[in-house]
Design a protein around this nucleic acid. Structure first.
Lengths: 251, 251
DNA sequence: GTTTACTCAATTATCATATCTATCTGACTT
DNA sequence: AAGTCAGATAGATATGATAATTGAGTAAAC
């Protein structure tokens, strides 16, 4: 039977819309406007009024307002009567929001952003590993081991390298048993996804697996300091590669 | 003249509404519902429908929907037709959203939350100090010095102790020149505001000032490792006190 | 008896329109 | 000058109607 197709998927937001967002007009608007803001489309021009936005995208004001409200919640916009809606300075954007993060990554890819990412990772993940060494349950330790196993399997072509790597690092974060550390899942996944080109290209994978195994072993024997150091070494290496790449570009 | 008073300040959201949120019905709903969720009011009961929420609070569905959309953006809710609106598991809440953070702190204050806070700080701030030692501009270094000066002044009663402490730590974060570190402003401010009782009660303030000065000095002489260690010592002490308090409670 | 297909109803999603409220601008008054 | 008022603008709110989605129950098909 020929079911009538929703207007969303056809007319207004054809294909590029992020799939993690809902599939309706409001989320479509959220995605379109959010991306436009992050790209800098409104840096030197006034942000349109609700009515203009609605007309421009062919949706009602209600939908527009809901999208604007979501962007306000994420720190990208603020709205006041008579003044209008204005783009907030980047410093007040919620960078730990996964939508904002994705929009930022879609932007011109910068090595600087990647460095900032990994400068954060080098703070977070070693501490998370140290906590995991002390606090993780047996189940969580097993998950870290499973991540490592997937990496080994990936080396033999039996699994996806990136997915395995992410699984390992996320398992460590989970093992910290601290909700704030767990929040970095998205961020670490994004950082790995964008930096895998560097790490793969320059250094052999087996070396990387040995480094990961060092982290795992330290966590298993509840060696807090050992886990911290091993993880720091792991990410420090990446950071170093990024620094070299940056130096090459600027030279 | 007797201007007509807005319904907000009188009828629906009398006094307790968070002032950092806007002063209109939508933000009022956001605050009321967000707080209710965090407190756990809907843990075992179904979340009301839009219509019920609107009726219960005496506002239109449009306002209700906008508030719900903002809570969706913060990760507390998700909504689907027929299924209704449901509270998301706490793991998907955006804990780095300042509203969510405030709601959480309003909840039953737990030493565990405070420990989780500071377990994160002990990862973030030493690295931030290390980065600041290398990267901060003269102006940013001056801001750190100013924060320290305020702490000294506060000791003599000429400034607010808490505000001065926050100013110092925020200045260090700013000095890292990394947007991701800067995001922790709110979090550090909250952590300090809630933990000041501990630190003040147990150890003398002058000792704390000496610790802060050590951080500042290391940053000034661009001593990356020194700044890291000094900051780690500073927060490690707090963490230790929290651990003792926790042990006392559970014993 | 199991699967498939269909209908129904509940709930969110969307739209259109009207009115209210806050706030800026500029003219007017004192 | 300083204060006051009127108009204009843009977001805020209300309302009522319609569409889209999907879980659950029910009938039909095999």
């Amino acid at each position: 039977m020929n079911r009538k197709v929703s207007i969303i998927s056809t007319d207004i937001f054809p294909s590029e819309m992020r799939t993690s967002l809902g599939r309706n007009l409001t989320y479509g608007m959220l995605d379109v406007i959010g991306r436009a803001i992050v790209i800098g489309e409104y840096d030197n021009v006034a942000f349109p009024t609700e009515a203009e936005l609605a007309r421009k995208h062919g949706v009602s004001r209600a939908v527009t307002r809901e999208a604007v409200k979501m962007l306000t919640a994420k720190g990208l916009l603020s709205a006041r009567p008579r003044q209008g809606t204005i783009v907030q300075p980047q410093s007040s954007w919620n960078l730990f929001d996964s939508d904002v993060l994705h929009w930022l990554l879609e932007r011109k890819f910068s090595i600087e952003l990647l460095r900032h990412f990994n400068q954060l990772r080098v703070a977070i993940e070693p501490e998370a590993a140290a906590l995991a060494a002390v606090q993780a349950t047996d189940q969580e330790r097993a998950a870290i081991g499973a991540g490592l196993a997937r990496m080994v399997a990936a080396e033999a072509g039996a699994d996806n390298t990136l997915a395995a790597d992410i699984a390992f690092h996320v398992a460590v974060l989970e093992g910290s048993r601290n909700p704030f550390y767990k929040q970095f899942r998205e961020m670490v996944a994004s950082a790995l996804a964008t930096s895998i080109h560097f790490t793969n290209r320059i250094k052999g994978r087996s070396a990387s697996i040995e480094d990961h195994r060092a982290v795992y072993d330290a966590i298993l024997r509840r060696d807090c300091e050992g886990a911290r150091c091993a993880m720091r070494r792991l990410i420090g290496d990446v950071l170093e590669l990024i620094g070299e790449a940056e130096a090459t570009v600027t030279t």
